[in-house]
């Protein structure tokens, strides 16, 4: 019985099937909000209000011609999209999507927060390798930009997640979520960290103003220049899933997780992650792309000190409570 439950867990909810369909839904939300902010309609024709448009795009890309450049490293070039998709899908297993009393996620152990963050960084590394192994000049520059940006946003992201974890006295996502469900007032302490994490997540997802590695007008497709067809579809899907996992992570740490059993928990998950995705779409619409060295300067001059300030506040609050 337990095995069956595990299989359902992995394949249906909150595993692969749910993850895929939900990430496509989130992509639709993102596109729609972005379009409305720009005085456009966005997807309109496929499905209800264009809801199936990301799915249609995905299916269309799957059928497109798949080209591997002659000079590229064939094995790495083909393996990386699947590898990247696997990594982000794995990282979703750590989200405590089920009710928090019994089994909260497929694997839950002390320190799963760090593992999830680590897996998300690994996904970024996959993008770098993809750019590097394409060997085209645009892809190489894109790959180098991915890594340069990683040095900028990774530290503030981790520091921002560190604050709530210190307050909750745990590295286990389920415990952090449970802690804030008991005393929701303490969520307000982390409000600065929430915004730091949000901006870092935006950079991690490589969206405007941090869409530097694949800045269309500068280096064509950047890391994805040589990718087409199925492989590009996998990369697009990977980005969408990364968005779900990243916003899920923030929802767990800063918004009290997803309590209330199967159905209410799912409602919590959908509402909270969609809210974060809408915030991300707002950032995307309101900024212009900045340069790669401006990202690093920005994150070390502003984001990191603010994240450290957040940790100091958390430590003081903790001392006061105890």
């Amino acid at each position: 019985m337990e095995t069956l439950k595990d299989i359902i867990f992995i394949l249906i909810y909150p595993g692969l099937f749910f993850l895929l369909s939900y990430s496509l839904f989130v992509e639709w939300v993102d596109r729609k909000v972005y379009a409305r902010l720009q005085n456009r309609y966005g997807p309109l024709h496929t499905g209800f209000a264009g809801m199936l448009q990301p799915t249609a795009d995905f299916i269309k890309l799957m059928f497109k011609e798949d080209i591997v450049p002659e000079k590229a490293d064939k094995f790495m070039f083909s393996a990386l999209p699947i590898f990247g998709l696997a990594i982000v899908a794995t990282s979703s297993l750590f989200l405590p999507v089920w009710h928090y009393t019994a089994q909260t996620s497929f694997v839950s152990f002390s320190g799963d927060l760090i593992v999830a963050v680590y897996l998300l960084s690994l996904a970024t590394l996959v993008l770098f390798l993809a750019g590097w192994h394409s060997t085209s000049p645009f892809a190489t520059i894109g790959g180098v930009r991915v890594i340069t940006m990683l040095f900028g946003y990774e530290i503030p992201f981790l520091l921002a997640l560190l604050g709530p974890a210190i307050l909750a006295d745990s590295w286990r996502m389920m415990n952090i979520a449970a802690f804030y469900q008991q005393t929701p007032v303490l969520l307000l302490v982390n409000i600065i960290g929430f915004f730091v994490a949000l901006i870092s997540l935006q950079a991690k997802l490589e969206r405007c103003p941090f869409d530097i590695p694949h800045a269309e007008t500068e280096i064509v497709g950047g890391t994805f220049t040589e990718y087409s067809g199925r492989k590009l579809a996998f990369f697009k899907l990977m980005t969408s899933i990364e968005m779900v996992v990243g916003s899920g992570l923030i929802a767990v740490v800063f918004m009290g997780g997803f309590p209330g059993g199967f159905w209410i928990g799912m409602a919590h998950f959908v509402v909270k992650t969609t809210f974060i995705v809408i915030l991300l779409a707002f950032i995307r619409a309101l900024c212009s792309r900045i340069r790669v060295e401006q990202v690093v300067t920005f994150s070390w001059r502003y984001l990191t000190p603010i994240a450290i300030l957040q940790i100091l506040i958390v430590i003081l609050v903790k001392a006061y409570i105890n």
Partner: peptide, 16 residues
């Protein structure tokens, strides 16, 4: 100019 710097919202508004 908005589009080249990745500020697509500006682009959409001015072209409207």
């Amino acid at each position: 100019a908005g589009h080249e710097t990745g500020f697509d919202t500006f682009f959409m508004y001015t072209w409207r």
